[in-house]
Amino acid sequence: MRPILEVVDVSHTYPNGVHALRKVSLAVNPGEFLVVIGLSGSGKSTLLRTINRLLEPSDGRILFDGADIAHITGEDLRRHRSRIGMIFQHFNLIDRHSVLKNVLYGALGATSTMSSILNRFSREQIAEALHNLDIVGIADKAEMRADALSGGQKQRVAIARALMQHPKVLLADEPVASLDPATSHSVMQYLEKVNRELGMTVICNLHFLSLVRQYASRVVALKHGALVFDGHPEEITDEWFTAIYGEDAREVEIR
């Protein structure tokens, strides 16, 4: 099977001199639920943001569907971003707008500037947005303002927004880090549903190993910006745990 995404020797250095990624190489196959683990500051978020090119990597190649997208610009860059969905730790919805509009904004990349600014989304787009809200189980909230929702509901709206892009890959940057344990599982289950039922490749940054063991089909670990582990969730032994998180770390369960 040809990988959908290949990260080849990617390094990234921020303008302040921090080496966030050091020669990371990684291939992701279609349909995988890949979880990236590592301490805060290990480069997880940077890695995700180079994949949909919210960040331009300093060095290396990123092959998406066979084409190198590491340094594309302009129209090419926007087309690339529109093929990859992303959800965030803080949901990043437009608080003052309705849930439905927030979902429709996932289609901005496929809508002309004029019709989007004049709020003229097509009937098909609106129907699709409602369908996507249905997938994440909150179609009844479509007309509510986004800031009236709970954290878990906001993250589900964010998933529905990402689905509007018909993405081949869904990036999730600490999707449950701001949520309580019960809600965390609900959001993870929707990601699992999207992965299994819609066949979408998911790349997800996570903190809790218990969630990793439950949802990941494959795990990679970053430490100081370098890839130190690549394998199955059950292969993360106590030795590996210490190697990834350091001597003082203790595993915390989330049920």
Partner: peptide, 18 residues
């Protein structure tokens, strides 16, 4: 956050501002 999220959908700069 919302700027990043809207940019990630493939929106152009004018759409992002709006």
């Amino acid at each position: 956050g919302p700027i990043e999220a809207i940019a990630a959908t493939g929106a152009n700069r004018l759409q992002n501002i709006w």
